[in-house]
Design a protein around this nucleic acid. Sequence first.
DNA 1: TTAAAAATATTAACACTGTTAATTATATTT
DNA 2: AAATATAATTAACAGTGTTAATATTTTTAA
Lengths: 214, 214
Amino acid sequence: MEETKVKNKRLERKEETRRRILEVAKELFLKHGYDEVSIRKIADKLAISPTTIYLYYKDKGDVIYALHQEGFKSLAMQFDVLRNVDEPFERLKAMGRIYIKFALDNPDFYELMFIMKEPIDFVNRSCASEWEEGGAAFGALVNTVADCQNKGYFSSIELHAMALYIWSTIHGICSLKLQGHLDHVVKEHLPNQENTSTLESAFNTLISVIKGIK
Amino acid sequence: MEETKVKNKRLERKEETRRRILEVAKELFLKHGYDEVSIRKIADKLAISPTTIYLYYKDKGDVIYALHQEGFKSLAMQFDVLRNVDEPFERLKAMGRIYIKFALDNPDFYELMFIMKEPIDFVNRSCASEWEEGGAAFGALVNTVADCQNKGYFSSIELHAMALYIWSTIHGICSLKLQGHLDHVVKEHLPNQENTSTLESAFNTLISVIKGIK
DNA sequence: TTAAAAATATTAACACTGTTAATTATATTT
DNA sequence: AAATATAATTAACAGTGTTAATATTTTTAA
């Protein structure tokens, strides 16, 4: 009976080391951005050998994927307050605002979660069909859109097409902003406009557009 | 008078080498994707030394930027047929379809032009204010939107906000698709739907949505 | 308690990357 | 033909992800 206890102790320690590696990876990631996260730098900060990390994560993509998952958990937490918003269209609006705020507050995480290819390729390779975190996020949007339709909003449009369309618009504006593709357009075509207000005006346009659909 | 002729000859040769480097860079880029384009591989294919490339391009970002510019020229050429479409809303629709087709046909170029940070950072650093190719593309959209408004379409919405909103939606759906973020969502929430039809249905949703705005 | 076994961590190395300084080869001008 | 300007090269630096072989530590068995 002792041997299982010891084995558990070992598994715990192993899990703890895994966690510590991820913690440092996350710290470097948030402080210096993705490009600055190298296996060697993570190892240096932990005062371990670079190769040790490969005993806990298959490769760098695996580490990145773990951060990717953390991001989705974090976003889900932000979404948690939506349970207090009963009116579906208000909930949809709040959802959009939280999503945008998350993107602006955590640009590196957003890049990891919705822009970069590597982590999502890892998902598509590993877990063939189910992917809880990602499915839940889009599922929450679909549910809210369905609730809106039950209240008469944009009920003429197919549910999933509508959800995807909303996500596309908000992701589009966030990704253009975060990747630096708005700076020039704003400078040339929308002077005397502040940085964040461009996002807001695009979001408000979306809201007022879909609000009118019967 | 001979010396200027010689100097011109030299400049021509220099420009020719610059062009050949870019040609190979583009070939590798289209064949193997961005990650596989290294200075050394370009040099190998040209049977020259890697460092020679640095005599023609400041750094790798400069090469990437040159391809970035090629992409914008190519897109502008695709847009050229729009001159034959008189009705503004039809032109807007055609514009969207061409944009989406360009993205699907040239995923690597699209990534370079509208997703990656590096080339547009290069733009924002180098040419402080004017950037013809990019400005022209968005300008074309703004003009078409303005023409639509003159015909009574979505005239209640501010011009630039509307243009940015349309771009965001179409870029959003393209970027989600190209970066692999739709695969999972489609598999889970929209089975029995084909790959490209997801894009089309989102685009059609956008069109039918904005068509109804007064 | 000590010897064997298993788990964990490390060193050394490979094959790459972008990039620069110093050097050599080539072409042009005097 | 000699001097000069231009072009291209070699060698090297500092970094990357990753693997195989080796050493160290921890656990198990005698």
